[in-house]
Amino acid sequence: MMSEKVTHIEEHRDDAASKLGMWLFIFTELLLFGGLFLVYSIYRAQYPANFHEASLELSVTIGAVNTIVLLFSSMTIAMALTAMQKNNKKLALRLILVTLLMALVFLVNKYFEWGAKFHHGLYPGSDLMALLERGHLLYFSLYFFMTGLHAFHIIVGMILLIVVYFKVKNGSIHFEKYFLLENGALYWHLVDLIWIFLFPLMYLIT
């Protein structure tokens, strides 16, 4: 009792609490994207034909590759956690690196995909966009906003994982105290989860 009065609660640590906190944060992220999916569903219901035509502009191949890339990275980060739990630090570090690499591949892909659109004069506020039909315009607005926000989350997730990587390396995350890795992984899965819904809704419209 006595020593607790001197050392402040800052050192206090509760793994279950921080995991619950992460899940609650994930809920807010889901609802953040949920608002966009709501807007998407309303406009798609209003302009189904336009959405189909506009979606043909996207390459299903690039979308599918990116889906596989993200799914794979999701597995590797889950494996990194398993490795940490089994006290295999080396493997965990490697798997985090693979995850980061995959994230980079995803972003590069995205860069080329967006770049091609920009090259054709398709970007928010462009002259071409102003000439489009309403449904097409809404589709591309949503496309840029949703994939843009998702890409932003990828970047945030990468930063988190980089922090986690160094913490594993210097030993502040170890096999008895790994909730930071666990939370980083949860965040990464969330990014994957959102893409699972974005992919069919953006690329596969008939």
Binding site: L24, F27, T28, E29, L31, L32, F33, G34, G35, L36
Partner: peptide, 10 residues
């Protein structure tokens, strides 16, 4: 927790 993200995205 659950309502604020909606206005955030809006």
């Amino acid at each position: 927790l659950l309502a604020t993200p909606i206005v955030g995205i809006t």
